[in-house]
Design a protein around this nucleic acid. Structure first.
Lengths: 129, 129
DNA sequence: CTTTGTGCAAAGGCTTTGCATGCTT
DNA sequence: AAGCATGCAAAGCCTTTGCACAAAG
């Protein structure tokens, strides 16, 4: 299986994790960097990128690559889920999709695919917007 | 409604369209540029980017933003569909997902979202890989 | 003739890398 | 002490933009 690549605990990683915790919506690495600084901690942008990548690899945070190619991160619930995102205010709602999971598994099997993963994001305008 | 932004027919746009036609898999703008050149046509990279964007806007081609942030294009069937992509050889199979469409519509409605669109891509290893 | 398209070079924006130094274990 | 982590600056990459010229309608 996938073994956790032994991360070392540092002031910087803690700061990034806390900054991420304080945010409700998906944030880019640079935004997290700003949040960290506003909270009074000082962490290099490079380190933020590396910390975020590490956390994503370890499955501690969710990553979405937006249409413009920028990667955004968010601390989410540990269980598998997807997102319903408002394209105007970016409010994000976690959604579950048991039927979709089933569908993905079935369609993959039908075509002989293994080790399947999927990306499902729903975008729209929320009530307020 | 969305009105088609009057495109002018040029040698370059035709070349890009043909290059795209000749490809089975998703290709990046730069790859399409190479294909065009190998076919003997000469088109600037910038123009390829602009042509691809225009075609995508007009719904003539499918675009996927890969995890690395690069946009890849492909000439697909006109109807709404999704993709099952091999993460090794990039073989792509078009799949339909009526149940998923229904689910997306329903879940969006439940949360009061309007103008909904969704992204669904399934990745795995195909039989050959 | 007017408007849109083309192309080159340069700029932009996000992300990664090289490398010397610092800190965790 | 040994090895991963940090940070700054620089480089990489894909993509977009400015601008003068060419081509389509």
């Amino acid at each position: 299986m996938t073994e956790a690549p032994l991360r070392r605990q540092t002031r910087q990683r803690t700061a990034v994790a806390e900054a991420l915790d304080s945010q409700e919506q998906f944030r880019s690495a640079q935004e997290i960097h700003d949040v960290v600084r506003h909270r009074g901690d000082s962490v290099g942008l490079t380190t933020v990128y590396r910390a975020l990548q590490a956390m994503a690899e370890d499955g501690q945070v969710d990553v979405i690559v937006r249409d413009d190619g920028e990667a955004v991160y968010r601390q989410c619930s540990p269980s598998h889920h997807h997102h319903l995102v408002c394209r105007s205010c970016h409010t994000t709602i976690e959604i579950e999709a048991p039927s979709v999971e089933t569908w993905a598994t079935r369609i993959s099997a039908e075509h002989g695919f293994r080790d399947v993963a999927h990306t499902i994001e729903v975008f729209g305008l929320c009530t307020k917007c």
